[in-house]
Amino acid sequence: MQTYILKRLIQAIPVLFIVTIIVFSLLHFLPGCPAANILGEEATGEQIQRLREAMGLNRPIHIQYLEWVGGILQGDFGTSLRDGREVFPTLMRRLPATVQLVIASLFISTIIGIPVGVISAIRQNSLLDSFTRIFALLGVSIPNFWLGLMLILLFSYQLGWLPASGRGTLAHLIMPAIALGTASAGLITRLTRSSMLEIIRTDFIRTARSKGLMERRVIYGHALKNALLPVTTIVGLQMGYGLGGALITEAVFAYPGIGHFTYERLLARDMPVVMGNLFLFALMFILINIFTDIAYGFLDPRIRYD
């Protein structure tokens, strides 16, 4: 097991290397000079030149790349072009709010998606199953920002039950989490259903039935445990995608997370912050996936990590 974890971590290194190249290339595609961008239109050529030197932009590109990567390895993501603060601590301060939102949305989508998917599968082709399939597909088809606006319209402006923006209490978290989690809920429902249907047809379920086990025991004891395996992978993936989706949701609800912050800095072309965020999210995605694969191994004794 330890060798497997180590192997996965080593495999992640070339991927992370490509990630840094993609992120770094972005800054150097930027039309115009970042130094001129910061100083504004009135800056003289000499001022721009001095800032370029201070920022290290006049050095060869591979040196700049190596310095940036070297910094990241030491947890130094550079400093913001807008306020001169260090990028890493700034991002870390905003991250918990977003992680909280993503976890809340995944919580909602799993507690809806798994039971509904199971019920839909054991009553395959019933009216209930048809409804579930339509609603699951509808959930996948709704843009999260629009759903967010509709929730605000109903629960904040019409009924006055929930706050339309901000963060702090559980009430602030409910609507953004639903807006962000609905698509995942649809996806998890669909996957649980199809995975369950597949398992129900396998030999060992037939054996369990034929040896006279109660149907409930068969479904919840035998089938569900196995059907949930692929669902684990999707939940892991959804956590990664949720980080991205959170950006728009946070914009709708003025939720002070890392996505909203990055979006503001993106408009201001504060590239060190944007690059830091991109790298951080990619790193988190890769780590979450490794973690999911390892969890998979604990859940499925058939998988051996040799």
Binding site: G259, L266, A282, F285
Partner: peptide, 24 residues
């Protein structure tokens, strides 16, 4: 395939936004 793994690792919308920030 490593390139694919790297591109998948970015949340699509944020990578798209960053490209938009660069290209306008």
């Amino acid at each position: 395939m490593r390139l694919t793994d790297a591109v998948i690792a970015f949340p699509g919308i944020i990578l798209a936004l960053a490209i938009m920030a660069v290209r306008g």
